[in-house]
Amino acid sequence: MQRTEFEERTENVSVKVFRYDSSSIKKAKFDTFIVPVKKGMTLLESLLYIKERLDPSFTFRYSCRMGICGSCGLVVNGKEKLACKTQMETLGKSIEVRPLNNMPLIRDLVVDFSSFLEKHKKVKPYIIREDVDKNPDREFKQLPEEVNNYLIFADCIKCGLCYSACPTNATDELYLGPQALTQAYRFIADSRDDGQMVRMNIVDTNHGIWNCHFAGSCTDVCPKGVDPAFAIQQLKTLAIRKSGFLKKKRPAAPIDKRREIAEHS
C-alpha cells in the first residue's frame, strides 16, 4: 500500500510572536514557537496550536474563524492580514506576528480598539434626514443602482487592518483613519441620506480627508475589498466641487402597503 501519497505531511514552521503584558512590568519581547503545519492550515489555527499545546498564557483575539467578524487582524511579516483568512502555506518557513499598529497594546496580540471606534462614531455612521420622525412607519425606497453606489463600503467589518496600514495614522493620532472616512462616504453616497453637509464639516478639517495622500495601503490590505482609498478620494472630489449628492433625497413612500392590507382585512 502506498500510504505516503495520502498521508498528511507536516512541515515545521517557526512562528515568532510578539509578547507584552501591561499588568506586569511594561516590557515586550518576541517568543518563537515551532508549529507543525499541515496543508490547508490557517494562521489562526497555528496560533490556537500555540495556545493549546505550547503556551496557554499566549493571548490573541478571534471569533468567527471565517473572515466575517474582523477580530483576528494581525501584522504578519510586516503586512496586515486576518489570521483566519491567511493560509500558512503562503507565509514561508519563518514568520513574525505582531499586533496591529497604531492602536494601544493591551496584551500580546490584543490591541485597544476604543479610539478607532470613537472615530467611527464621529462621522455619524447612520442615516440623517429630517422627515424620519414625520414618517416613522414609512420606508425610504432605493433603486438597485443606488444600493450599488454604497454596498461595497457597507461590507466593512471594522477589523482595523486599514487603520494599521495607513501611513498617516502611523504618526497622526487625530487622523480619522481610512475606516471612519469610508463610512462617512458610505452614508453620503446613500440615496436615502441627507447628511452630506454635516459629515463634510467633520471630515473636511485638519486631520480629516486631506491628510490622506493616496498611499492606497488601506485598500491593499482590506480583506473585504471595501476600497477605502477610493471612498476617501471621492470625499475629496465632493469637498472640492461642493456638490454631487445634494439633490438626491426621495420623499418617504406615500403608502404603507402592509398596513393598508392589515387594516382592510
Binding site: 473636511d204 478639517t205 485638519n206 480629516g208 480627508i209 486631506w210 475629496k236 469637498a239 472640492i240
Partner: peptide
C-alpha cells in the same frame, strides 16, 4: 480657512 480651500489652492 477651510482645509478644502487650502487644498484647492495647493492644486492650483
Amino acid at each position: 480657512m477651510k482645509e478644502s480651500t487650502l487644498m484647492l489652492l495647493q492644486y492650483l
